[in-house]
Design a protein around this nucleic acid. Structure first.
Length: 505
DNA sequence: AATTATTTCAACCGCGCAGCG
DNA sequence: CCGCTGCGCGGTTGAAATAAT
C-alpha cells in the first residue's frame, strides 16, 4: 500500500501526541491510550527503526522496542509490523495458485490456524492468509459455493482419519478437535425458509424430490438470497475461486439448477439426501429425510428431535460462524422464526463427524406438497427448456461446477442461486436459472449436456456416496500435505518469537 | 471523465492461552 | 498461585484501490 510513503516525511518517534503525523495521516492514526504510542499506518521511518532494532536485538521482546528505540509503537504493533511487513523473508505479491491451493488444503486440515498455516507457507503471514481466506470465503459465499472442493475435503478427511488412527496430529492436536473436522468445510449461510415454487421446477425434479432425493445444498440457496448477509455484489476480477483444482472432479459434479428465493418464493429445502448416502439414517418419511453424514443439518425446531452427532463445534472461518448453527447439540438452536437453517453438506462421506441424521424438518413435506400441487400444472415446455444446450455458466475450473456432489438433482444446487459458478451477480430466477423468459439452463458435466434422465440417474452424485468418492479419490491430487517443517520461516515471527533469544528488559 | 459501489488489505483491539519468574 | 509478557486468533475498521455505472 502507499500509506507509508504518504507519511514518510512526517515522522514518528512520535512522542508528541500533537504531531500531525499521527492524527492527520489517517483517521486511525492516533495516539494510543497511554498518550505516547502511535497507531495507524507505519511510516518508512518507523519501519527503519524497527528493522534496525530487530537487526540488533533480534525478534521478540517487542515491548522493549519502544523503550530501546524510542519508537512510539506498542510491542504488539511492532511485532505485527515486523511479522507482516518487515521480515526479510516475506514473500510479497499475490498468492500463487499453488499457494492458494495450499491454503485451502491447510485450512481444510487446520481450520483457522493462521499461524500454523503461515508456517507451512514460506514467506507468507498469518494475517495475509487470514485476509485471503476471509475474502475468498466471502466470494464463495456470495457465489453460493462450498468453501472447499471435494477433493480437498476428502483429503483432509482422510488425513484426519490417519491422524486419528495415530491418535495424534502434529503437535498432539486432538484430531477430533473442530479444527480438523471436515465439517468446517462448509458454509452456514443464513437464510429464510424457502418454498419451492412449483412453476420453477421441472416435473421430474419435483417427482424426484417426491422420491426422496431432493437434495439441495443449503449454501447454494442462501448466498444469493434476499436475506443473504451478502447481497449480490460485484465480484472483482474473474479469478478462480479454486485455483489449481483439476477439472476432473468438476466434471463429475454437475452444476446448473437454480432456485429462486425471492420474497414470494421461499424454498423450504432440507437438503435431504438419498438414503443411499445415509449411513445413519433416521428416515422418518416416505421421502428420505436422512442427511448425508456430515451434511448440512436442518436446524429448525422440527429437526432438533434428531440431533446430529456433531458434538464438536468446528472452528470456522469467521464468515462461517454467523449463524451459530454449529453449536453442539446441546446448545440452543437458532431461533429463526419459521426459518429453516441449513448447514451445507460437505461432500465427504467418511467424515468422522458425519453421523448427521437430523430428521426431516418438514421442509421436505413442503417440497412434496408443492410437488403434488404443481404436478398437474407443469407443462412440458419447461422440460424442453431444461435441455437447452447453452452452458455458458459452467465454470469447470471452479468449485461451483462440482460444489454439490451429493446432489441428486441434475443440476447442482450450487447454481441454484448463484448461476453456476459465476461470481457476478447471479441471474436469479425461479427454480432454474432462466435465460430470458423461461429457458432453463442445461445441466452439463463431464463435458457434455445430458438428458434429464442421465442427469438425474447417471450422475455420479446420484450414486452412492462411495461411488462418488471413488471417483473423487481417483481424480484428486494425491499429494499429501507436507506437515513437516517447511522452511526457515516456519515459526518465524510466530512461534520462533517465543524462542526467546531476547533478553528480557 | 466523474461518480459510485465494492473489494482489498494493513492495522487495531480484545480475549485467551502458555511460559516464566 | 499470581502477575507479567509474548503470542495467536477472531473480529473489526477504514483508507486505498479498483470496478462498475
Amino acid at each position: 500500500m502507499s500509506m507509508n510513503s504518504e507519511n514518510d516525511e512526517r515522522m514518528m518517534l512520535n512522542n508528541d501526541p500533537d504531531s500531525p503525523s499521527v492524527d492527520d495521516a489517517n483517521s486511525r492514526g492516533n495516539v494510543g491510550g497511554n498518550g505516547s504510542l502511535k497507531k495507524g499506518p507505519w511510516t518508512s521511518a518507523e519501519d527503519a527503526i524497527l528493522v534496525e532494532y530487530v537487526t540488533k536485538h533480534g525478534e521478540g521482546n517487542w515491548n522493549a522496542v519502544q523503550k530501546h528505540s524510542g519508537l512510539a509503537r506498542c510491542g504488539k504493533s511492532c511485532r505485527l509490523r515486523w511479522a507482516n511487513h518487515l521480515r526479510p523473508d516475506l514473500r510479497k505479491g499475490a498468492f500463487t495458485q499453488e499457494e492458494e491451493r495450499r491454503i485451502i488444503e491447510l485450512h481444510a486440515k487446520m481450520g483457522n490456524k493462521w499461524a500454523r498455516m503461515a508456517a507451512e507457507l514460506p514467506g507468507r503471514t498469518d494475517n495475509e492468509i487470514k485476509n485471503y481466506w476471509n475474502t475468498r470465503i466471502k466470494r464463495r459465499q456470495r457465489a453460493g459455493l462450498p468453501i472447499y472442493p471435494p477433493d480437498i475435503c476428502l483429503q483432509a478427511s482422510n488425513e484426519n482419519q490417519e491422524s486419528d488412527d495415530m491418535n495424534a496430529y502434529s503437535s498432539g492436536h486432538d484430531v477430533h478437535h473442530p479444527d480438523f473436522m471436515p465439517m468446517n468445510n462448509f458454509e452456514i449461510p443464513e437464510f429464510k425458509a424457502f418454498q419451492i415454487n412449483p412453476q420453477l421446477y421441472p416435473q421430474e425434479l419435483l417427482d424426484f424430490s417426491s422420491n426422496s432425493l431432493l437434495n439441495i445444498p443449503a449454501s447454494s440457496l442462501l448466498a444469493q438470497g434476499p436475506h443473504s448477509p451478502y447481497p449480490n455484489k460485484r465480484i472483482r476480477g474473474s479469478e478462480s475461486l479454486f485455483p489449481g483444482l483439476s477439472t476432473d472432479i468438476g466434471n463429475v459434479i454437475p452444476d446448473g439448477s437454480q432456485y429462486h428465493n425471492d420474497d414470494s418464493v421461499q424454498i423450504a429445502q432440507p437438503f435431504m439426501l438419498s438414503s443411499a448416502y445415509d449411513h445413519n439414517s433416521t428416515s422418518n418419511h416416505g421421502s428420505s429425510s436422512s442427511v448425508l453424514p456430515g451434511s448440512h443439518a436442518v436446524l429448525n425446531g422440527n429437526t432438533s428431535s434428531s440431533e446430529p452427532t456433531w458434538a464438536m463445534k468446528p472452528e470456522l472461518p469467521s464468515l462461517q460462524t454467523q449463524t451459530g448453527c454449529w453449536g453442539p447439540p446441546s446448545s440452543p438452536l437458532p431461533s429463526l422464526e419459521s426459518v429453516d437453517t441449513l448447514i451445507q453438506t460437505p461432500p465427504i462421506e467418511n467424515t468422522q463427524s458425519c453421523n448427521l441424521s437430523p430428521r426431516n424438518s418438514g421442509l421436505l413435506d413442503a417440497v412434496l406438497y408443492e410437488s403434488q400441487t404443481i404436478k398437474n400444472s407443469n407443462n412440458s415446455s419447461r422440460q424442453h427448456d431444461l435441455f437447452d444446450t447453452s452452458s455458458e455458466d459452467l465454470h469447470e475450473t471452479e468449485w461451483g461446477a462440482y460444489s454439490e456432489p451429493i446432489s441428486p438433482l441434475g443440476p447442482s444446487s450450487s447454481s441454484v442461486f448463484s448461476e453456476g459458478t459465476s461470481l457476478d451477480e447471479p441471474k436469479i430466477t425461479r427454480g432454474y436459472r432462466v435465460e430470458e423468459s423461461t429457458g432453463l439452463f442445461p445441466v452439463q458435466y463431464d463435458n457434455r449436456v445430458e438428458t434429464q434422465n442421465e442427469m438425474i440417474y447417471s450422475r455420479p452424485d446420484f450414486l452412492l456416496a462411495s461411488n462418488y468418492f471413488v471417483t473423487n479419490d481417483q481424480t484428486r491430487f494425491s499429494g499429501k500435505v507436507d506437515t513437516s517443517a517447511t522452511s526457515s520461516t516456519q515459526g518465524y515471527g510466530h512461534d520462533s518469537c517465543s524462542s526467546n533469544a531476547m533478553s528480557s528488559v
